[in-house]
């Protein structure tokens, strides 16, 4: 091969490489852009003509979801199939339910806003008892502001009284804790991704903190994002690692990439379908169905993530 031919080959190779790299970058950016959220429908009542009232909590699987119907002091379980919601399977009176979670056995964990304790219901809705951490060397008073249950049924509690995230096993035994950072505004919610990374949302600073699975402290992932959101109070993560922040005062969802950079907003403030009026908890099912407790609109809105 001549020197000219060799040069041509290397130039072509370089051109291909650059084009490929550009395409890769573009496809990644485009990929993030294309994960659109499509409104499906809203749930306004329990199927027995009793309307929802200021629901603050929603938890979901791929076959059912549970609503903390806060204003009516009850928990409602709704089955759904092919994205169609069925009438409520059961409802259970609970004092002031504000956050709900479901474990792998279908048991329902409920944070009671008045007692500030976590009540557990069996899968059939009967009461199992209260979550009581065992063997914790740190949680002296434990005031859960929020909590999450992961696939392995580990329970992560945002304990604002002791200033830490407490990690328990399914039986409530202490596994570990991670203290809050030295400086922060106010932590409202937490989320855990598939890898076990823990994310905290700071409502006051409009910031996100994270801790790796083996970390013993939190570090700031996203600095003050007041430019993009007002007062984020809830956080959820989808299967691709995108962070969804519920901007309560802005009535929207703010999406962040898993490195904490802001991607875009979804929806806005209002009363119509796919608008939010002081939304609270949101949930993303493994299949990508999204539920938002649209609190002050007294409804649950259901969306699907279009890849």
């Amino acid at each position: 091969m001549s020197a000219y031919g060799g040069n041509l080959m290397s130039k072509s190779f370089m051109l291909y490489s650059i084009t490929l790299a550009l395409l890769l970058v573009a496809s990644q950016a485009f990929g993030a852009e294309t994960a659109r959220i499509k409104f499906l429908h809203s749930v306004y009542d329990d199927g027995k003509e009793i309307s929802l009232l200021y629901p603050e909590g929603v938890a979901c699987t791929d076959s059912f979801f549970v609503v903390a119907d806060t204003g009516n002091n009850r928990i409602i379980k709704y089955p759904y199939q092919d994205k169609i919601v069925q009438p409520a399977e059961f409802e259970m009176p609970v004092n002031a339910p504000i956050v709900v979670q479901i474990n792998s056995k279908g048991e329902i964990y409920i944070l009671d806003g008045r007692d500030r304790r976590i009540l557990i219901l069996n899968a059939d809705g009967t009461e199992k008892g209260y979550l009581s951490p065992k063997g914790s060397p740190v949680a002296r008073k434990m005031v859960p502001k929020s909590f999450k249950i992961e696939e392995d049924d580990r329970i992560y509690i945002l304990d604002i009284s002791d200033g830490l995230v407490l990690v328990l096993d399914a039986a409530g035994n202490y596994i570990k804790h991670i203290p809050f950072p030295q400086e922060f505004g106010f932590f409202s919610d937490l989320a855990i991704d598939k890898q076990g990374n823990i994310f905290l949302v700071d409502s006051v600073e409009a910031a996100v903190y994270s801790a790796a699975p083996d970390a013993n402290q939190f570090s700031q992932l996203s600095k003050g994002m007041h430019e993009y959101m007002n007062f984020p109070t809830n956080i959820a993560i989808d299967s691709s690692g995108i962070l969804y922040l519920v901007d309560k005062h802005g009535g929207s969802l703010a999406l962040l990439s898993n490195d904490g950079s802001f991607l875009r907003h979804e929806f806005g403030y209002g009363w119509r379908e796919s608008q939010f009026y002081y939304p609270a908890q949101m949930c993303i099912s493994p299949a990508g169905n999204i539920f938002v407790a649209d609190r002050s609109n007294s409804r649950i809105q259901m969306f699907e993530s279009e890849k």
């Binding site: 002031a96 806003g113 008045r114 500030r116 005031v143 604002i160 009284s161 002791d162 106010f186």
Partner: peptide
Amino acid sequence: MNQSNIHWPLVDQ
């Protein structure tokens, strides 16, 4: 403490 909606900073550290 017996109200349904507490101003959360009241019960933090």
